[in-house]
Design a binder for these strands. Structure first.
Lengths: 147, 147
DNA sequence: TATTGTTATACTCTATAACTATA
DNA sequence: TATAGTTATAGAGTATAACAATA
């Protein structure tokens, strides 16, 4: 049921973000750049758990739309620093509002205390999976976030 | 987070079922046939929320492996009744054990009361989404189960 | 030689439409 | 004409390997 509900949640988030010209991954990328400042593509790939080659295909449209710029890191000219533009910041704001709408719709059957209990339980599961996998060396998608 | 955790759950279930030569959908199909007896493909498509064309591609390997048979319904020779064989029943048992292992691993950080509370909250969300969509006419994947 | 980023390729899952056979 | 099932095709998402530039 967790898998099925998660699939439905992803579908709704994808629909909402598509209306803003973004994929869920691109929304994630914009959010990271907003919170952490400019990042190299390697860092973005690690944080979002996407292969480097996939990251490129996500960044290209973002750069073409002027939401993001790529500049060479002067100290290591192999690295491309990805920077959030002002346009990108605005797009992130409207996309975040759309995301919030989807979340409200998804969890409208729960009151505030039920919602926080659900988050609390999911956090327990997630944290156990992430550092559990780091410990026993069975890497999966979830733990690359913290590595 | 629900979407991400659901994705991870689906990945683990898929891996477990792949080891038994099944997809998650095929496991779902076998389970339905076990619980409800022979069903026409239309019914299976509705219950599992898969397009008819997708259902065919899931049933073909099941029939080839002898887990399932397709027979014409004598009362409406357009309908193909899908029947679970004894081999299919056995495969379902081993696959169900594998699914249970994955669930135990996923939720090992929760004790029994936490697990039941999580299920309870997820059921609330799911039921609201399903009959909520039936009411307001915004059909999604989840509500076809109950229609 | 190793690392960053890019390109090309293939594979899976999914959605759609066209087709057949029955009703 | 409408329905049950099938086939073929195209699209999105993802994973892998080969490649260019830089360290």
């Amino acid at each position: 049921m967790l898998a099925l509900l998660g699939h439905e949640a992803m579908r709704r988030l994808r629909d909402a973000h598509t209306a803003n010209g973004l994929t869920p991954r691109q929304f994630h990328i914009l959010g990271l750049l907003h919170d952490r400042g400019p990042l190299a593509q390697t860092d973005l790939a690690a944080e979002t758990d996407t292969a480097a080659s996939v990251l490129v295909t996500q960044l290209n449209p973002l750069e073409a739309d002027g939401l993001v710029t790529r500049t060479l890191d002067p100290r290591d000219r192999r690295r491309h620093l990805v920077v959030l533009t002002e346009t990108g910041r605005q797009r992130l704001r409207t996309a975040a509002a759309a995301q919030q709408e989807v979340e409200d719709e998804l969890f409208r059957s729960l009151n505030d205390s039920q919602r926080s209990r659900l988050t609390q339980l999911l956090v327990l599961v997630r944290d156990d999976l992430t550092d559990g996998n780091e410990r026993c060396g069975t890497p999966t998608s979830l733990d690359r976030k913290t590595s």
